[in-house]
Simulated scan of single mutants.
Amino acid sequence: MTIVTAPLAGRAIGLPAVPDPVFAGAMVGPGTAIDPVREPGEAVSPVDGVVVSLHPHAFVVVDSDGHGVLTHLGIDTVQLNGEGFELLVNKGDTVTRGQAVVRWDPSAVEEAGKSPICPVVALEATADSLSDLREDGDVKTGDTLFGWQ
């Protein structure tokens, strides 16, 4: 069982509430989303593993069970071309749960006209392989979002 924890603080809202049809329809995979607190901070790794994909606006960490977890910082933030995001690790790095991966400012994302909502997705998973899915309530960085069989 992989435990996936919150990469940042905010309010859990669930994927159906994400203002993007691909995430809202769980086409990328099942999971949840966080409406982040509006202050500069760091998005941290939600699992122990290896950074297999790294962009200013999104990263994927694969754990020892082969589970890949996508953290997407905001919606349509790829259009910001990295502005307002600072990478703190490199692709291929081994990271631990809670280790800072990207520094960003959700308020700046919102001011640029993008949604700061952050999907946290279990890649190549099925909805029934997830348990204890958090889809509401306040979450602190490191709180459990879901378990993954």
Rank of each mutant, 00 (worst) to 15 (best):
E83H: 07
E135N: 07
I3D: 14
F23H: 01
S107H: 05
D35N: 12
I34V: 15
P46W: 00
V78M: 11
P116N: 09
G25R: 03
A24P: 01
A122D: 09
A17E: 14
T77C: 04
T141L: 14
G82N: 01
I34S: 09
H55M: 13
P116H: 10
V95A: 06
A6P: 08
A26G: 00
P119H: 10
C118G: 04
F59S: 00
L80F: 07
I75K: 07
F146S: 01
V61I: 14
V44H: 11
P19H: 08
E86N: 02
T32Y: 10
G14S: 10
V37C: 10
A43S: 12
A127D: 15
D48R: 01
L15M: 11
K114I: 02
A125I: 01
P56M: 09
A122K: 00
D63N: 11
W148H: 14
C118Y: 02
V109T: 14
K140H: 12
E111N: 11
G98V: 08
L70E: 10
H55G: 01
L123D: 12
W104I: 09
I75W: 05
P36G: 03
G41P: 13
L87Y: 03
D93N: 13
G14R: 03
G31T: 12
L123M: 14
H57F: 13
G25C: 06
D65K: 11
N90R: 15
P56K: 07
R103Y: 02
T2D: 00
D138C: 06
A108Q: 10
T126N: 15
M27K: 08
A6N: 04
W104L: 09
L8Y: 06
G147N: 10
P21Q: 07
G137W: 11
D76E: 14
G49Q: 00
A112K: 10
S131M: 04
H57D: 11
E42Q: 13
V102Y: 00
L80A: 06
K114E: 13
S131P: 02
L73F: 11
G68T: 07
T2L: 07
G113D: 09
V121D: 04
L145S: 05
R97V: 12
D48P: 03
F146I: 03
K114Y: 06
M27D: 06
S107V: 12
A127E: 13
G66A: 08
E124H: 11
S129A: 15
V47W: 00
E39N: 11
T71W: 02
K140W: 03
S107G: 13
F23V: 01
P21R: 13
A24V: 05
F23A: 00
P40E: 12
G29M: 11
G92S: 14
G66N: 14
W104P: 00
A112H: 03
G92T: 09
F146E: 02
H67M: 02
D136R: 08
P36L: 04
L80W: 05
E86T: 15
G84V: 11
I3T: 15
E39H: 12
V78K: 03
A33I: 10
D35C: 08
P56W: 12
T32H: 13
N90V: 05
L130A: 01
A43W: 12
P116R: 08
V28L: 13
V78T: 09
P119K: 08
P40Y: 06
H72E: 13
V28F: 07
L15W: 07
A112W: 09
G66I: 15
T32K: 02
V4I: 14
A24I: 05
V61C: 04
T96D: 08
I34Y: 04
L87M: 15
R103T: 04
W148M: 04
S131T: 15
